[in-house]
């Protein structure tokens, strides 16, 4: 059974007097354990698509199911409850809370679940991303790469089945970005997580099992050659 399934997904927004169509009749099926990259130009609607897929926003039309559950049947709170503990996120701008330490940032999603020993888990994951010695540092005391590591630990700490990553290297220099990507795929492999990654970075996309291009509001499958070109 697919972990994520979208059929005929359409998103329109009002922009002043005009109505903009960002996604039109998009289809996507993702199976557990897959890693999928979605490529696209800036402004193609990648972030909008990610928001829809994660249930952070509702489509104008179309059918969308997460973990086999049709999202249309759920209200905002229902969708939130569906995500709790099962979906992880990595954002371009890290989205760490500036007043929380690294450890506390990682604790945040666990505290919403009933998982046991949150602090032990959080420490363990921070150690796995190489920040075992930096537990009590605030985000501003960490470099961009370190902040994104904290974000990775946070994404995996609840044992999420599905991780969405939105331009995870967008704010990092190439070398740091590469290390983060290595770490992301390593963690993904170890945890057997499904990964949906939105990026404009082809090198990053190559590491995924499947690559799709967002064009004219639809997804187009890319061949190996296209990706490596």
């Amino acid at each position: 059974m697919p972990i994520l399934q979208a059929e005929g997904l359409t998103k329109e927004v009002d922009s002043g007097e005009r109505r903009l169509t960002i996604l039109s009749g998009l289809d996507l099926t993702v199976f557990p354990g897959e890693s999928v990259a979605i490529l696209g130009q800036s402004g193609a609607g990648k972030s909008t698509l990610l928001g829809l897929l994660a249930g952070l926003d509702a489509p104008t039309q179309g059918h969308l199911a997460l973990f086999g559950q049709a999202l249309r049947e759920l209200d905002e709170d229902g969708r939130a409850a569906l995500r709790a503990g099962r979906v992880g996120f990595v954002f371009q701008n890290f989205q760490l809370l500036p007043t929380l330490t690294a450890l506390e940032n990682v604790l945040l999603p666990i505290e919403l679940t009933a998982l046991s020993d949150p602090a032990v888990r959080a420490r363990d994951w921070l150690a796995r991303v190489g920040l075992g010695e930096r537990l009590d540092h605030l985000p501003k005391q960490l470099s961009g790469g370190e902040q994104q590591r904290v974000a990775l630990a946070r994404a995996f700490v609840t044992g999420a089945e599905l991780v969405f990553a939105d331009e995870p290297t967008g704010n990092l220099d190439p070398a740091t970005g590469a290390r983060i990507i290595d770490l992301l795929f390593e963690l993904n492999r170890e945890a057997g997580t499904t990964l949906v990654l939105v990026t404009h970075d082809q090198a990053l996309a190559q590491r995924c099992g499947r690559c799709l291009r967002l064009e004219g509001g639809r997804l187009v499958a890319m061949s190996r050659e296209e990706v490596e070109a």
Binding site: A54, A80, A81, Q95, L97, P109, T158
Partner: peptide, 19 residues
């Protein structure tokens, strides 16, 4: 203003409005 981010993140992580 500051907690809007926290609230949004918590929503992402699955917190309900009531929660």
């Amino acid at each position: 203003d500051r907690h809007l981010d926290t609230a949004a993140l918590l929503r992402c992580f699955g917190a309900t409005q009531r929660q």
